[in-house]
Design a protein around this nucleic acid. Structure first.
Lengths: 124, 124
DNA sequence: TGCGATACCTATAAATTATAGGTATTATAC
DNA sequence: GTATAATACCTATAATTTATAGGTATCGCA
């Protein structure tokens, strides 16, 4: 829906989440294979609920990454329940590297403009 | 255009830019009043082209922020050209504080999950 | 037997950046 | 002197992506 260019930005609070779900999913799955529901909970737990991705975000992301061959999956039956475990392919690992670099570049550039106190002080 | 949930994510490379234009604009204008074209160039220059916002991003953002009373503007004629200088209002300053905090929270959480080496080592 | 947790899934809405234009003036290079 | 790049403003629409709100089914516990 188009509502005039003056209202295109800042309708609500930006979440700063562009690209973050994909980045985190690839990163966690590179450490070890996990299933969707587990990813949702792990991300919540390890960030102290700062980042809380719904299943409606995680499952479509997993499917898309698998379709692109960045992830591969296998089914596993555990206690009568079916889990779909995902792991990172070689292609996915390359993508993760690229996304990590891009993330570092953007956050670094924002940090510079924000006048962030350089933590390079650790070198002292 | 809707193309099926499997293609909703990761069509191209995420830019990690959600909310960043608004954050940078508010931050730069808090330091000193600037006009739109100047913001575009300053952001490019100070980030070494890592972040390059088009005028089509900056001007609508300025108009929206002014409409929300986060910014105020005044015209100024310089060498036959008209410039529109923007500065941050009290409300805009509060918004900047909130966005900065949110930015720090998100990047901190992502850093944790990415296994970032803690720069808290500076305390040693 | 009812309810919360586990585990999967999809469709659509909402929000925001990116792109591609368009106007006009000034300074510079040919 | 005239074409071109730079300055300075602007808008409309496309493209991208997250968020929300559902829906199904099984298991364990009260």
């Amino acid at each position: 829906m188009y509502r005039g260019s003056d209202e295109v930005i800042a309708q609500s609070n930006p979440s700063f989440m562009n690209g973050v779900p994909e980045l985190l999913i690839l990163r966690l799955l590179q450490a070890r294979e996990m299933y969707g529901y587990e990813l949702v909970q792990t991300i919540r737990a390890e960030t102290g609920n700062v980042i809380s991705l719904g299943e409606g975000v995680v499952y479509p992301a997993l499917h898309a990454l698998e379709k692109q061959r960045a992830l591969k999956s296998r089914r596993k039956d555990v206690g009568g329940r079916t889990r779909v475990y995902y792991s990172v392919t070689a292609s996915g690992a390359k993508r993760l590297t690229a996304l990590s670099t891009q993330w570092a570049r953007i956050t670094g550039a924002v940090g510079t403009l924000m006048g962030e106190a350089r933590h390079a002080a650790a070198a002292i």
